[in-house]
Amino acid sequence: MKVEEILSKVQQLPPFPQVALKVLEMVGREAPFKEIARVIELDEGFTAEILKICNSPFFGLSRKISSVQEAVVYLGEKYLLEIVTRTASKKYFEAAHRGYDLQRGELWRHAVACAVASDLLQERLGRGKDLALFTASLLHDIGKVVLSSYVADGLKEILERVRAGKPFIEAEKEVIGMDHATLGGMIAKRWNFPEEIIDAILYHHNPKEAKTEYAAKVHIADVLCSTLGIGAGNDELSEKIDSEVLKGLGLSGKDLMEMLVELQDRYEKTQSLFTTEQGDGF
């Protein structure tokens, strides 16, 4: 059975780094930053990445930063936590995902842009930065990483259904027996993510069915990125916009257009630090 084969592929995915999960959990219960920093420092990989970014020309610091405790002074707590989440996530997304017509780096750019968009959304709604939302936005398409090769195999049939007006995600489900959101939810559950993150990944195309507001916010962030074409591949424009969710959060068409400008600006600023270069032709 294809679905069983897909589920066995999920088991083979490398586990999400424990340090990043621990940090997420500590931020969730508002642990003091000093304690969080100590956890990060136990991991050489994360520490190295934080120091690399802190010492990059982007920040133009005159002296070399050599510890996480020092780095926080320059980066700020929230940005430092973001780096941990991004560093933990990047390796899953970077490859090309041919089923979705995405070249190397494109799905990762989509993930990063979506996380940036979720920050902007929080600001527009007058709410504070939320690391769980940022993480859910970054990982919302994790199911695609596994499903891509199966989508590639069934692409002709999927696209036939899409041309007949069916959303891509429903066509995935019909042809493969599995869709990227359901699979993403399973992966997040397997990785022991908090419930709101699992829920947001599972319902990012169908936020009305979600238990928390996270899915609606990820949905909106996803819509903004797909509208700009960032990692939009062959599928994103063939998904539905849930305008009720937009209205429910009090967002107007004008809000969305203004956010597109902000998104492009902020995404570009972070792009140089976190993503790989643009494609290689047709």
């Binding site: 007006g165 959303p167 819509v223 797909s226 509208t227 994103e236 424009l237 063939s238 998904e239 539905k240 916009i241 305008s243 009720e244 937009l246 209205k247 068409g253 969305l256 257009m257 597109l260």
Partner: peptide, 13 residues
């Protein structure tokens, strides 16, 4: 000028 499926015509960018 492509668009997502938007039955309400809310965004239509």
């Amino acid at each position: 000028g492509g668009e997502m499926l938007d039955s309400s015509g809310f965004f239509r960018i």
